[in-house]
Design a protein around this nucleic acid. Structure first.
Lengths: 192, 192
DNA sequence: TTTATATACGGAATGCAATTCCGTTTATCA
DNA sequence: TGATAAACGGAATTGCATTCCGTATATAAA
């Protein structure tokens, strides 16, 4: 079974390259968890036991690495939308999914901030996350049609939630939760 | 009349030092407007016609410079609270002041982002703005007591609005306005 | 096997902005 | 009109990010 990188690139990686790529992903997860997604590239390369040149050949931008490291997590979050939609009434399902998304970004140190960075290397990161997470959110919003303000798009709601999570950490999460709850209330209050 | 820097420092600056400080502030305003508050320090020093050493002697951190450059604007925004409180019913005054604050941060390229940066040099910037803007906001919220959710503090509301403005530019401002309006609606909706 | 070669490797070299350092200059005041 | 504290400029240093390139190796054809 070809893995994701193969499937996307076309040409399979040489055995040593694949080994190093996997080592980099594992190292990056460890370093990201310890130091955040802005950790020096050298730290990650060292942890993986490869040179920085090898790192850059595989992940030209930091965003490429972040996307790869959290690929599965993002997919699981996207998939949760369907489950929640089946379990709860429309508006509740929407609210629960937003919680689920908040857990995703707040748990990964610095991810919420990186997601909204203006740096060119990161616009691709936001685009990737957005492309995979906004459609499920849009589905939930459509299902709650009539209970949510009609002038708010899924994409901007998604961005707003991410922004409110930017300063949050796992220990200091209650402010972000409260502000998002205010936002979600506003979403319902202004329903057409 | 001693100027603000004198008043805060204690010792008046030597004539050449004051001249350079003023030149740096003027240059910084121009450069910030053109390139944003993250512009290279060298650009600002060059524009002012001084060496970078002179810059750093006067403004040890970039935050010091930003605070000084926008000092008057921040004061005017703080003062607007009283005016608005006298002109409008409590909740409306609150909403108007939030608009006023948004104008302040969105007009200054990159300011909203810097305001929420995690970098150590910037925590002082947020603290300064927060110390001068949250009290007036708190006054407005207290006046609208009963019409706003009681579990939301002025400080966190202030931070939330700033966060939602982070990606906004003067041209692309409507999304931030809409999201803040949703937030403000939520504030009222959940009123005790 | 062997060998040709496309890939990949490591880490030195380079680039760039932030920040510090220090020998020289100047404003101030006795 | 000195003495001296304060300030000046910009070279040097630092700390990454990113590129470059000579060497090594996996792969597959002979």
């Amino acid at each position: 079974m070809r893995d994701r990188a193969d499937a996307e690139e076309g040409q399979p990686l040489r055995a040593d390259a694949k080994r190093n790529r996997d080592a980099l992903l594992e190292a990056a997860l460890a370093v990201f968890t310890a130091e955040g997604v802005d950790a020096p590239i050298k730290d990650i390369a060292d942890e993986a036991g490869v040179g920085v040149g090898t790192f850059y050949r595989r992940f030209p931008t930091r965003a490429d690495l972040i996307v790869a490291v959290y690929h599965h997590e993002v997919d699981r979050c996207a998939a949760a939308a369907a489950t929640l939609a089946a379990q709860y009434p429309p508006f509740e399902a929407l609210a629960h999914w937003i919680d689920r998304f908040m857990d995703l970004v707040v748990t990964k140190r610095g991810l919420a901030t990186a997601l909204h960075s203006e740096a060119p290397a990161y616009v691709e990161l936001r685009a990737d996350f957005e492309a995979r997470l906004v459609p499920p959110l849009k589905g939930l919003m459509d299902a709650a049609h009539g209970e949510v303000r009609a002038d708010v798009s899924a994409a901007e709601l998604w961005r707003a939630v991410g922004l409110l999570c930017a300063p949050a950490t796992p220990e200091n999460f209650s402010e972000a939760r409260r502000m998002v709850s205010v936002l979600v209330n506003g979403l319902r209050f202004g329903a057409a």
